[in-house]
């Protein structure tokens, strides 16, 4: 019986190892999406300390900027305000002018355009 269980466990682990990494990632993301949203983790101390430092983004307020995000995203617009939590861009869309807020935690870089 023990040998049978060992063989079954080995087979199961081989199956997991053989799965495509992208497929495994999708499974994880699907499971995460199915679970209720977890409480937001506390902001790291380093980030808190950084928040107290002078903000270079404030110097770009009023300018047209390109904001790149940590997920390789890109947003273009006029920087209208900078807060501790977000950068606010004014983006001109075909049908309206949008005030778009980019969370500071997801910003990778900001540069004038």
């Amino acid at each position: 019986m023990r040998a049978l269980m060992v063989v079954m466990l080995a087979a199961a682990s081989m199956d997991v190892a053989a799965a495509d990494p992208s497929e495994a990632k999708i499974d994880q993301l699907m499971s995460a999406a199915a679970k209720p949203a977890a409480a937001r983790p506390a902001e790291p101390k380093a980030a808190k300390a950084k928040a107290n430092e002078p903000d270079s983004a404030t110097s770009l307020v009023g300018q047209r900027v390109a904001v790149t995000t940590r997920s390789n995203g890109l947003y273009l617009g006029t920087l209208t305000s900078v807060t501790r939590d977000a950068l606010v861009l004014a983006i001109e869309l075909p049908s309206r002018n949008l005030s778009y807020s980019v969370p500071r935690s997801s910003v990778a870089s900001i540069s004038p355009r």
């Binding site: 890109l74 947003y75 983006i91 869309l93 309206r96 778009y100």
Partner: peptide
């Protein structure tokens, strides 16, 4: 709807 930006840039 209208395009706001690239959540992931073209690659």
């Amino acid at each position: 709807g209208d395009l706001v930006g690239y959540a992931a840039v073209p690659q």
